[in-house]
């Protein structure tokens, strides 16, 4: 089993090299989203770099979640939603006909605002993804993946003695880390996080933020947040949305210290939003 993971790690690093040569991992080109008649996003163009954390900020209702959900096609679930434009992940347009959302979501994981562990055991929560994608076949290997994922999510020490207990019985912060462990257990390339800390207290938030910083080494992370401080703390890049438009995006330092657009400045200084 160790062999296997070493092998896969080797494969991963080779893969990463080729990717780095290929430039950004995700490119959005003219993404527009309509909910029925109502347009929620207007021509979004943005690139996301590998191994970076990008924050999406902006006032409520500006389309951050909508955009995030375009990246793993969760908007497909909304009957009235219609997406136009292109989202290219690793040179593949994910809205082209030959893309299967199941395969896509195995590569683009998601962590939601409200912790939503399955009402199953902690072990099964983490093991579910590898099990359905059949990336892990033996019981030993599964044990390893579960342990490894929980360790990377910083939850292992707290739950190692009660893996068979219900995931829903954990505290809110632990549940959110369990959800992160569940997302990374299938080794996605990208992790999308929609306000992952909004239901957590400051201490749990700090733990998750630290975790995000560590996960950056292996994954590309896009995080929606309402907290400027959080954006400043965890992300290298920041994108500011306003009324369905991408107003400005760039290095986090630059956005927070020297915004180019008035709307951005007003928002981060607390005058709108």
């Amino acid at each position: 089993m160790l062999n296997n993971s070493v092998e896969s790690e080797q494969k991963m690093s080779e893969f990463e090299k080729t990717l780095d040569e290929n430039g950004p991992i995700i490119q959005a080109k003219g993404v527009e989203v309509y909910y029925g008649e109502k347009q929620a996003l207007f021509g979004i163009d943005i690139d996301f770099q590998k191994h970076q954390v990008t924050s999406l900020i902006g006032p409520s209702g500006c389309g951050k979640s909508t955009f995030l959900r375009c990246i793993n096609r969760m908007n497909d679930l909304v009957d009235i939603a219609r997406v136009e434009g292109q989202v290219i992940i690793e040179n593949q347009d994910i809205y082209s006909k030959d893309v299967d959302v199941v395969a896509l979501r195995a590569h683009v994981g998601m962590v939601f605002q409200k912790p939503n562990p399955f009402p199953k055991s902690i072990y099964d929560n983490v093991a579910y993804g590898p099990r359905i994608h059949k990336t892990v076949t033996s019981k030993d290997e599964m044990d390893y993946v579960v342990e490894h994922s929980l360790k990377r999510a910083g939850l292992w020490d707290e739950v190692k003695d009660r893996l068979q207990e219900q995931g829903t019985g954990l505290s809110g912060g632990q549940q959110q880390r369990l959800c992160i462990a569940r997302a990374i257990a299938i080794e996605p390339k990208v992790i999308l996080m929609d306000e992952p800390c909004s239901a957590l207290d400051p201490i749990a938030t700090a733990v998750v933020e630290e975790l995000i910083d560590e996960l950056r080494e292996r994954f590309t992370i896009i995080i929606v947040t309402h907290s400027m401080q959080q954006a400043a703390r965890v992300s290298q890049k920041t994108a500011f949305f306003h009324l369905g438009n991408l107003v400005e995006h760039g290095d986090t330092d630059q956005i927070f210290t020297n915004p180019q657009d008035d709307r951005t400045e007003n928002y981060i200084t607390g005058r709108i939003g």
Partner: peptide
Amino acid sequence: EAALGIGAS
């Protein structure tokens, strides 16, 4: 959402 989000059909 949780299940679909990790690629369950």
